[in-house]
């Protein structure tokens, strides 16, 4: 009985442990070489052994990602508003934005390096470029799908466009906004890491490349695990904020 409630409360945690155990089991049983595919235990050992180095690089990746993410919130919300509140802007911007979003962002890194040099600059911008699109699209969708009936409620009172935006448009967008943050934050980590792998001497991306070239596979896997944990924590943070601010949109009947 007690076990059953644990399963329902922490299904992710349980699945995680099952997978780790299976992984460890496979590595032990088949005696997989750690240079090919390290076991969880070996990864944990290198996490402990290199914790100060990993922490340093993780911090670099974290703040770079956060700055890029912040920029993409600002830019994404702004363009989302522009596109969502005007039909003509929607028709003008949307196809171009989609085309832009289809470009592989990793291909931008060498260009950004030419413009901004090696280091945090390209990483921040790659994180931004890769993550602003979902935010923009969601805000635009939230505004463009505003029920005209709700607008009429305010319009019959003589409300201005600004009133309608602040009293209805904005609150109506919030669930869309938070949903997009959860997608965008994971993308932002991808952007930062890709950029660091190509053009940086700090960050988890750099750690991955140097660990790989030194054949330290457990360390490389440890780096990956750290990114996963950071992205998951941020995701959970936005999830919690979402639950507390837009409960009305997530009600259960």
């Amino acid at each position: 009985m007690k076990q059953a409630t644990f399963v329902y409360r922490y299904p992710a945690l349980l699945l995680f442990f099952v997978l780790i155990l299976a992984w460890q089991g496979i590595c032990v049983i088949f005696k997989v070489n750690e240079f090919i595919f390290p076991s969880p235990w070996q990864i944990i050992q290198s996490l402990i052994e290199f914790h100060s180095v990993i922490l340093k690089h993780a911090w670099a990746t974290f703040w770079t990602t956060m700055i890029g993410f912040l920029i993409s919130i600002i830019v994404g919300v702004f363009f989302g508003f522009v596109i969502g509140s005007s039909r003509i802007a929607y028709d003008a911007f949307y196809p171009l934005m989609t085309a832009f979003n289809a470009l592989p962002k990793a291909a931008f890194v060498p260009i950004l390096v030419v413009w901004f040099g090696i280091g945090a600059g390209p990483a921040i911008l790659t994180a931004f470029l890769i993550s602003f699109f979902p935010i923009m699209v969601n805000i635009a969708t939230g505004l463009a799908t505003l029920e005209p009936e709700l607008e009429d409620v305010l319009r019959v009172l003589g409300a201005s466009r600004k009133d309608i935006l602040f009293k209805i448009g904005l609150p109506r967008c919030l669930p869309y906004f938070f949903a997009s943050l959860k997608v965008a934050i994971t993308l932002a980590f991808v952007g930062t890491t890709v950029s660091e792998m190509n053009a940086s001497n700090q960050g988890i991306g750099y750690l991955l490349v140097s660990a790989g070239s030194a054949m330290r596979m457990p360390l490389a896997f440890a780096g990956l695990a750290v990114i996963g944990v950071m992205a998951m924590l941020m995701y959970e943070l936005f999830s919690a904020i979402e639950k507390n601010t837009t409960a009305w949109a997530h009600r259960k009947s």
């Binding site: 003589g158 109506r172 009305w248």
Partner: peptide, 27 residues
Amino acid sequence: SGMAFQAPTLLPWRTTLDNVLLPLEIV
């Protein structure tokens, strides 16, 4: 003028009280 529609068109993120107060924030 005040208006009521066929659908209640209350704003789902506002409590009943805040919905009723809405016109006073506009007019």
